[in-house]
């Protein structure tokens, strides 16, 4: 441990729209170490996916723009690199898997072509070598009879299979960082279990650092080592997974944990967070969560709290965390 792969510092990604500026990501910092899985949780509009796209520099411009911060990948700031240099990194040293296995594969090429493409591009393999490696990758991600499957088109495969192919493409060049944006959300639970297990195995085998973005706390609990909770474009709490579930310090984190039905406990009533995620233009001025928070006082409405380090590695952005006694059942 201690081998930092990715360090994001004060990242700011804004979208300049006709209705005004959306600060989709506003001062986000975190780091991921080799072989570590960082879970990023949040609801829609929290900025979790924009953070991922920012690292890959896949923000559509206009209207989006990374206006500040640093993205240090193995000590080098990606924001200072040319687009050609970024292209060499994308899909090679950092790769990404997306939510929709149906649309992220090109329907006119065979899966073999699509895996080969990255290999030929980044590792300079010839056609034959690339195809051989593609078969190996398919086998690794658990696709039966890969020699035949490599010649199939995406539509001949099920959703779970396609997600496996996506993972095969993402891991083909043995990346040091894998960004997975809701990789199992579109899949059924039994298939989700397969994919999560696969990601775990691959992480153990290759020591890949993983940034896993999801809204599902269950997935977080099962695979993440560290967790960052995002709300309104900001990290509101970050700590290791055990502490997060047992001792959440931010009211939003506690609210999220309490609003999901427990499989075991037969509670009669859920405790939802009140209100809804505001639209991007109407977040409160102070703490972004103030208008939905049960504990908010005047100060929270007016001034935004800074991130505060509680004890080793547990940081929280809340004025009142020390006077709260949050419980997560």
């Amino acid at each position: 441990m201690g081998d930092t792969i990715l360090e994001v510092n004060d990242l700011q990604t804004y979208f300049f729209t006709s209705k005004g500026t959306v600060k989709a990501v506003d001062g986000v910092s975190f780091s991921i170490e080799k072989g570590q899985t960082l879970g990023v949780v949040g609801e829609s509009g929290s900025g979790k996916s924009v953070t991922a796209s920012s690292i890959m520099q896949l923000i559509p411009n206009p209207p989006g723009e990374i206006v500040g911060g640093e993205i240090n990948f193995k000590g080098q700031n990606l924001l200072n690199k040319s687009i050609d240099q970024i292209r060499k990194i994308r899909g090679n040293e950092i790769s990404m898997i997306f939510q929709e296995p149906m649309t992220s594969l090109n329907p006119v090429y065979t899966v073999g072509d699509q895996i080969s493409e990255v290999l030929r591009l980044h590792q300079g393999l010839n056609k034959q070598q690339a195809l051989e490696k593609a078969v190996v990758m398919l086998e690794k991600v658990g696709i039966p009879s890969p020699e035949q499957r490599v010649h199939e088109h995406p539509h001949q495969m099920s959703g779970g299979m396609r997600q496996r192919v996506m993972i095969a493409i993402a891991l083909a060049c043995n990346p040091e960082l894998l960004i997975a944006d809701e990789p199992t959300t579109a899949l059924d639970v039994t298939i989700q279990a397969q994919i999560l297990e696969l990601m775990q195995e691959l992480k153990d085998e290759f020591e890949t650092a993983i940034m896993l973005i999801t809204h599902d706390l269950g997935v977080i609990a099962e695979v993440a080592d560290e967790v960052a909770v995002m709300y309104g474009g900001r990290v509101v709490e970050k700590t290791d997974v055990m502490t997060l579930f047992k001792n959440p310090q931010h009211p939003y984190t506690a609210g999220l944990i309490n609003s999901i039905p427990k499989l075991k406990a037969d509670t009669n009533r859920l405790e939802p967070i009140k209100g809804i995620v505001p639209d991007p233009f109407s977040f409160p001025n102070g703490c972004k969560f103030a208008n939905r928070c049960d504990y908010a006082v005047d100060k929270c409405q007016r001034y935004e709290p800074q991130l505060e380090e509680l004890d080793s590695g547990h940081i929280v952005r809340c004025w009142k965390h020390d006077s709260l006694n949050l419980k997560a059942e």
Partner: peptide, 15 residues
């Protein structure tokens, strides 16, 4: 197969 939102629970999964 359902992921449980409790990191302490380590179940035997039937995959």
């Amino acid at each position: 197969a359902i992921p449980v939102a409790d990191p302490e629970v380590k179940r035997e999964k039937i995959i």
